[in-house]
């Protein structure tokens, strides 16, 4: 009998770490309803934006500048950091917070005896592992295109690239956790997405323009996120000024309140 014949292949258990987190990632990445819109809202929008601007430039280069350069990079950053990236994060977070409930799998997971807190917390890294690669890839694409398609325009410096990259990842992560908490609280994916999109787009824009609200507007998610952006606000008259510390406190409160409510509901709900 040779050594290779005698060697019995005993299957080993998978790495004990992060099994629940990998299970969360598996559920999300195999769902067409999650990854397709996420891809469209991140990579898709960057491709569309740069392609459209480049087509305009090629068709009439005297009227339209090149698609690359700092200005277009800043536009892409605004799109990712404060609009599409946030909506993508809301979609993934809502799915992560509700998919076990809507499929009745939550009941079976709870009946294993595994702590409900642990089940909830596993959704944070699990969902971010799904979302952030898309955001990072879209950002990287925007960064590359801003240089490759710059023509004679100035390109962003390394510092801006790094700061902007951290900013888009951070803002997406914050919105993801908020959406996860809200989804776990409400239990309905459609309701969670509707509430968040309504808040992130029209409601927030209206509230931040009501000057009578004064400093209360510091509590708006978009205001706090915008403060972290390495770019100046697109419309200086629209800006609600706040310190970096206040912005971080506001974001921490958003995460603590909605994440906490989601955790509480996960622990308390009849499975």
């Amino acid at each position: 009998m040779t050594t290779s014949e005698s060697a019995v292949q005993v299957p080993k258990p998978p790495r004990p770490l992060f099994r629940l987190e990998r299970a969360e990632l598996l559920k999300l990445r195999k769902s067409l309803g999650v990854w397709v819109p996420t891809a469209i809202l991140t990579l898709g929008l960057i491709i569309i934006m740069y392609t459209a601007v480049e087509i305009f430039h090629l068709s009439n280069s005297t009227k339209y500048g090149p698609a690359g350069g700092t200005l277009n990079f800043e536009r892409a950053l605004f799109l990712m950091g404060q609009i599409a990236g946030m909506i993508a994060a809301a979609l993934v977070g809502a799915a992560a917070g509700t998919q076990d409930l809507s499929s009745n799998v939550f009941r079976d997971l709870v009946s294993t005896g595994r702590s409900r807190t642990r089940l909830f917390l596993a959704r944070i890294p699990g969902g971010l592992a799904m979302l952030l690669p898309f955001v990072a890839a879209a950002y990287a694409l925007a960064a590359v295109l801003s240089v490759v398609l710059a023509g004679g325009l100035a390109t962003p410096g390394v510092t801006l690239f790094v700061k902007a990259g951290l900013y888009v990842l951070f803002s997406a992560s914050i919105v993801y956790v908020i959406a996860l908490g809200l989804g776990s609280l409400v239990g309905s994916r459609a309701a969670t997405i509707s509430i968040l999109i309504a808040y992130l787009l029209p409601v927030q824009a209206i509230l931040r323009n009501i000057s009578v609200l004064g400093r209360a507007r510091d509590g708006l998610l978009s205001v706090a996120v915008e403060r972290l952006s390495p770019l100046p606000p697109p419309d200086p008259h629209d800006a609600v000024s706040m310190s970096l510390a206040t912005s971080l406190i506001v974001l921490a409160i958003w995460v603590a309140v909605l994440g906490g409510l989601g955790l509480w509901r996960t622990r308390a709900r009849d499975a």
Binding site: K27, G33, S103, N104, D108, L119
Partner: peptide, 27 residues
């Protein structure tokens, strides 16, 4: 009625369930 993630395969659903159990459950 047992619930499952319908977009996953039977094996993947068991993988998800095993993740909430001891590591040997995967085997």
């Amino acid at each position: 009625e047992p619930g499952f993630h319908k977009h996953l395969s039977g094996r993947e659903n068991l993988w998800v369930a095993a993740a909430a159990r001891e590591p040997a459950a995967h085997l």
